[in-house]
Simulated scan of single mutants.
Amino acid sequence: MDIQELRKLEPEEVLGKVHELKQELFHLRCQLALGRIENPMRIRHVRRDVARARTVLREKK
């Protein structure tokens, strides 16, 4: 997700996005533990997306 897209959203929407991304991260970690992950680099991208979303929330406060 692009930082510009996140900045256009309302704080509640960004918070929802953080929640969705954290769920995705959980599922990716479960797949990694089971050895069924297709793209291990996806974990890194999702973690960074969570950080971006949290940064935008912090900016809006």
Rank of each mutant, 00 (worst) to 15 (best):
M1E: 08
M1I: 05
M1V: 04
M1P: 11
D2F: 07
D2S: 15
I3A: 09
I3L: 14
I3D: 07
Q4S: 12
Q4P: 08
Q4D: 13
Q4F: 11
Q4G: 05
E5D: 14
L6Y: 01
R7E: 02
R7D: 01
R7F: 00
K8D: 03
K8G: 01
L9C: 01
E10D: 13
E10Q: 13
E12A: 15
E13Y: 10
E13H: 14
L15T: 07
V18S: 02
H19C: 09
H19G: 11
H19L: 12
H19S: 12
H19P: 06
H19K: 15
H19D: 10
E20R: 14
E20A: 13
E20H: 09
L21R: 00
K22A: 05
K22Q: 11
Q23L: 14
Q23E: 14
E24A: 14
E24P: 04
E24F: 03
L25W: 04
F26K: 15
H27C: 08
R29P: 04
R29S: 06
C30R: 15
C30D: 11
L32D: 09
L32K: 15
A33Y: 11
A33K: 15
L34M: 12
L34I: 10
L34D: 12
G35F: 10
G35K: 12
G35S: 11
G35L: 11
G35Q: 11
R36F: 10
I37S: 03
I37W: 02
I37H: 04
E38F: 11
E38T: 12
P40F: 03
P40A: 04
M41C: 10
R42T: 04
R42D: 07
R42E: 09
R42M: 09
I43V: 08
I43T: 03
R44I: 08
R44G: 09
V46F: 05
V46H: 02
V46R: 00
V46T: 10
R47H: 03
R47L: 08
R47M: 08
R48K: 12
D49T: 03
D49K: 12
V50C: 06
V50L: 04
A51V: 07
A51I: 07
A51D: 14
R52E: 05
R52C: 06
R52K: 15
A53G: 05
R54D: 01
R54Q: 08
R54Y: 02
R54F: 01
T55K: 14
V56F: 03
V56P: 00
R58D: 07
E59L: 08
E59N: 06
K60D: 05
K60S: 05
K60G: 04
K60T: 03
K61L: 13
K61W: 11
